[in-house]
């Protein structure tokens, strides 16, 4: 296993990115921090053997956020509703967008937010989702179409 000093360096180099990616995927800073930390720890045992650790980290973050999304996205929406308007809560427009994003199937949500906010390339998205780059374009297209409908209602 990679020694502590090297892992610390890896952690410092990639933590902020991992949090940002998780924010895109789960829509909550607090949850994103938790998932980013988990992902970095999960990657550690394999770091020595990998050609491209950042690419592997991307996939891990996407998978962990997917598990979280399946179990908790609905609950997160209830929390947003319950805390709307409280000091420190998000704006109404942000809540509306977070709800709309949460309504997308996970892979569509991932493709849209990773491309348009986290600035991943289609190849990076494809590799993390385990599909072909052409499929990423389909996911983005469908995701945007669904978002448009959700927001317009």
């Amino acid at each position: 296993m990679m020694d502590s000093a090297s892992f610390d360096a890896f952690y410092r180099a990639h933590h902020a990115d991992a949090v940002r990616w998780a924010v895109a995927l789960v829509g909550s800073r607090e949850v994103a921090e938790e998932l980013a930390h988990d992902s970095l720890e999960a990657v550690r045992p394999r770091l020595d053997g990998l050609d491209q650790p950042p690419a592997y980290l991307r996939r891990v973050v996407v998978n962990r956020c997917h598990s979280w999304h399946r179990r908790h996205a609905r609950e997160q929406r209830r929390i947003r509703r319950a805390t709307a308007g409280a000091p420190g809560a998000y704006t109404a427009e942000t809540n509306e967008m977070l709800d709309a994003l949460a309504a997308l199937p996970y892979r569509q949500r991932a493709a849209v937010t990773l491309r348009y906010w986290a600035d991943w390339t289609d190849d990076q998205i494809a590799e993390a989702l385990g599909c072909a780059p052409a499929s990423v374009r389909v996911l983005v297209h469908r995701g945007i179409a669904t978002l448009r409908k959700e927001i317009a209602e």
Binding site: R20, V23, R29, Y90, L98, T113, Y116, W117, A152
Partner: peptide, 22 residues
């Protein structure tokens, strides 16, 4: 909303989430 408008709104929303200090 046009695509560009939607993307802008996505960015604004996620920027706000990311800026929240945890």
């Amino acid at each position: 909303p046009s695509d560009a408008e939607l993307v802008a709104r996505i960015r604004v929303a996620l920027d706000e989430v990311a800026a929240t200090s945890s």
